[in-house]
Design a protein around this nucleic acid. Structure first.
Lengths: 225, 225
DNA sequence: GATGATTTGTGCGTATGTATG
DNA sequence: GCATACATACGCACAAATCAT
């Protein structure tokens, strides 16, 4: 008989890749901070080999960058980077909306409606910011998922992990939450109506507003180059 | 005085990354082919450490894939993968066209006209297929470049390296070359006219046709899953 | 600058798991 | 099923470059 569960050991380089990535996106390591192979190896109680492999991958992803002397540090997005990332999101997510309108089942569309309803309730009861942020992300995630294109999802995820570096600045208070919810609802209405053009446009506009707001936040808080 | 040129040694892991990537996209290694760290280390006369780091990166890029037993092989796109990649290209490149119309200088637009003129001449004198393919790529590259968004370029490059795995099947003969040139010209006309909507649409249609043609080729030649 | 301490790049050995006969 | 050969994961050591004092 087959064993139902055999726990194959996950290689250190893979485990560490996830750990380090989490440390970066969660802010344990701050943008610009120097990464030290030897130190990390000590901290995690492994040799430098798996550490190095994970670092190379995160470099490729853009979450780590290395200078000309091979010193590695946490990616620190510039103002221009933020704009470029948002433009890419506009390209990919507006297309995802189009695909979803073509591909999604009606009950899937309804699921997005439920997410929005949940969001409204969360705002109403003044839920913690983290919860509202999660619901907003969930809205975008559902659209990407229902577009039924894994490659598209991967590309957006890549941008997303970079965005996490400044995501906490992108939400403050009930007023902002209501604005976002309204824009999400506008996108949702066009999806339900099956209007590709309008839905796509609504997504582009939403991300445009999101970017404007974020830029304002970043500027007033002088958080970025 | 500063030395004008100091050749810093490029790390093996980086050199090998480029070598292996080239071997994959140029077809020296065929899709599905097994990758052997030890063998490659011998072939290149280095130890396995830098080889492993490069392999991890190429895995992340999607040009290599590993099975559950950590065996690595060259990525073999499925039929669905091809469709997904083309949809992503549609999203990104149609957006690049929009950005270019906003951002490009008039002489940059003219450069694209020159590429098209060169292409027509090359077709007319029945230049080698490789040359025409290069010119067609150049058309797309120029648009991406003039969109002035490095992140967008990176995302498209990622798709492109995957596309190279089947690019030779995407061009056969003068007739096809003329069709492509006509579609490129249509895009160019809309760019010159500054019509974002129409230019973006023309790009999407062009890639749609390209995909149809490619699918046909792949099917008749039974080259893909 | 010069010197010792770090840090990275790389080779190599070993253990464990996998394929092959 | 078993033994042998091989492949991968990982630790470790050393050299060269870099940093710090």
């Amino acid at each position: 008989m087959k064993q139902p569960i055999i726990q194959k050991p996950i290689p250190y380089y893979e485990q560490f890749y996830h750990s380090l990535k989490a440390m970066i996106v969660e802010g344990t390591l701050t943008p610009g901070e120097r990464i030290n192979e030897t130190q990390l190896a000590k901290d995690f109680g492994v040799s430098r080999s798996p550490i190095r492999e994970a670092i190379r991958v995160l470099e490729r992803e853009g979450l780590l960058v290395s200078d000309e002397k091979a010193k590695v540090m946490v990616y620190q997005p510039t103002f221009q980077d933020v704009e470029e990332i948002y433009q890419c999101r506009q390209a990919l997510e507006s297309f995802a909306v189009r695909l979803m309108i073509t591909a999604a089942e009606t009950d899937e569309t309804a699921q997005i409606g439920l997410v929005l309803e949940e969001t409204r309730q969360a705002i109403h009861r003044e839920a913690p910011a983290q919860e509202i942020i999660k619901l907003n992300e969930s809205f975008h995630n559902h659209i990407i998922l229902f577009s039924r294109n894994n490659r598209l999802k991967r590309q957006i995820d890549e941008l997303r992990s970079l965005m996490y570096l400044f995501r906490t600045y992108n939400f403050t208070g009930t007023e902002r939450a209501l604005t976002i919810e309204a824009e999400h609802s506008a996108i949702y209405r066009e999806i339900k109506a099956g209007n590709q053009e309008a839905a796509s446009k609504a997504m582009i506009d939403h991300l445009e507003h999101d970017l404007s707001y974020l830029k304002e936040q970043l500027q007033t808080k002088a958080l970025i180059i």
